[in-house]
Design a binder for these strands. Structure first.
Lengths: 235, 235
DNA sequence: CAGTATCCGATGCGATACTG
DNA sequence: CAGTATCGCATCGGATACTG
């Protein structure tokens, strides 16, 4: 962990960049800002990051006063929590995400979407609804993904949402049949989900009283409401 | 220059971080946003960056659509200019600087201030005034800096401000006698300049009609108006 | 669950020297 | 002024295996 100044400038931008510019750090902050507190939860949000590096980064953030490492109720349950200064990084993280959503071309990013990451992201923003049974179980069948990774289950229970990659003989209420690229696009707000339902590139199979609410309980990315620039202007 | 995706996430934050997180890139954007267009001007804003690396970064930014490289009026005069997407990064750069100004402890950053960088920064924000003669020449004498780097001249002429490190037998109007740490602090808004004038830790020597305007023509950092958190809360 | 230790290859980047 | 080419070290970080 490198805490010494690389830039040698008193400029606050330089001082902030000293650690915000480190590989993975912004993404870790995103996870924390979205509410993850456990090591494994954070790790699932940055699946390509090695756990040892995540460990180092978390230590650095503790040392810098961005997060606290707390051992709640003994039992090795560690909680990472943003300090007030860490919480104040929200606008920084958000402005960078907003710029990306507005200006960046999407094509490169959907070439190799990590299935696990997408599902974990969906779990995070899925919306429990009182109109749904308890539990309410949704199976995602990603029809263009290799077999052993193509099925995922979202379990709505007691106002929480869990994610599972293994079939536990669930009593599935709704099946979502869609390609991973299409799912990414509609969930990110890059394409209109109503249109995708119309042309059946995404299909919700189950009782109509549940499928007609799909657009709500599925949720969407927290930047989905930010409009992309027209294709010709993107970079 | 690495344009391939390191994070493998469609998340716009990850996509943006792919290049905004690169060493020096945010500082280069700061220079461009503040109006530098030439290679050497940009380079003076990032004095510890090697020129070959700056060259590479600029190329990358061109490739990504953040800046344009234009050869104005032939004659090898190259201008780097932000595209619309590049300009839109202003809020990102600013939010990061703002967070740093608000939350970061200043002590580490003033331990080893680069004199050249500070003077270049001051030049950028100095304010030409109609009440001043033309030219108006200010000598900075940094009384705690080694002799061959302690004197700098700011030349206000025709609504432009130039900086010089060599004594050209100037007709100096005002001499500023101050330590580099104190100058940094007041210029960054970390300490009150009026107070520093009172206790004579900064001294303006010259005709009173010019020295009494010093607080104005000296200017201050573009984040100086952002209040720091009380010392106890800083990190 | 929440990490740590070690290994080792890739590459980032600073230094230096050179060009039109 | 505006770069480019080359060298070589340092460190970053991924992979793997192990721990309480």
């Amino acid at each position: 962990m490198n805490l010494k100044s690389q830039y040698g400038q008193y400029c606050p931008l330089a001082m902030s960049s000293e650690f915000l510019g480190n590989r993975w750090t912004m993404l870790i902050l995103r996870e924390l800002l979205f509410g993850s507190t456990g090591f494994n939860d954070i790790s699932r949000g940055v699946p390509r990051m090695s756990r040892s590096l995540l460990s180092n980064r978390l230590k650095e953030l503790v040392k810098r006063g961005i997060i606290l490492r707390q051992n709640k109720q003994g039992r090795g349950q560690i909680h990472y929590q943003l300090t007030e200064a860490g919480l104040a990084l929200g606008p920084v993280v958000f402005s960078m995400a907003q710029w990306g959503q507005e200006w960046l071309d999407i094509e490169p990013s959907i070439e190799s979407v990590d299935v696990g990451f997408l599902m974990w992201d969906i779990r995070r923003n899925a919306v429990p609804m009182k109109e749904l049974p308890n539990p309410f179980i949704v199976e995602f069948f990603l029809n263009d993904v290799e077999k052993n990774k193509s099925s995922h289950w979202l379990v709505f229970e007691d106002d929480k949402v869990d994610l599972c990659h293994i079939n536990h003989d669930f009593d599935v209420d709704v099946i979502v049949d869609v390609s991973i690229k299409k799912l990414t696009k509609v969930w990110m707000g890059w394409e209109d989900i109503e249109q995708a339902i119309m042309d059946e590139s995404i299909q919700f199979k189950g009782l109509e009283k549940y499928t007609k609410l799909a657009v709500t309980w599925l949720g969407h990315s927290s930047v989905a409401q930010i409009k992309k620039r027209p294709k010709s202007q993107r970079i």
